[in-house]
């Protein structure tokens, strides 16, 4: 159990986040959010936007490594 501390925390944290996420979606159905642009008012739009953006950033970043990544001592040579 001693070495599994981090894994247990991660599990609790994931459950907590999923619960909050679910709650936020439920709230979205019960109220009508006012925003500056119609797009943002669509139910669940910020949620989907956030999820997609995050995945996009990570994937694009990963691909960028092919172009931008050099060895650690690149500038020292």
């Amino acid at each position: 159990m001693k070495n599994n501390n981090l894994k247990t925390y991660a599990k609790y944290f994931s459950q907590f986040i999923i619960a909050i996420a679910g709650l936020l979606v439920i709230i979205d159905f019960t109220i009508h959010r006012h925003a500056y642009f119609y797009l943002e008012e669509i139910i669940g739009f910020p949620a989907i936007f956030g999820f997609v953006c995050f995945v996009l950033i990570v994937i694009v970043g990963k691909q960028l490594r092919k172009i931008l990544m050099r060895k650690e001592d690149y500038y020292d040579k």
């Binding site: 959010r33 943002e40 949620a47 989907i48 956030g50 999820f51 997609v52 995050f54």
Partner: peptide, 13 residues
Amino acid sequence: VSQLQLLVFAILA
């Protein structure tokens, strides 16, 4: 709600 949705679903991602 809008900001929390953005952040929490990004954490979910």
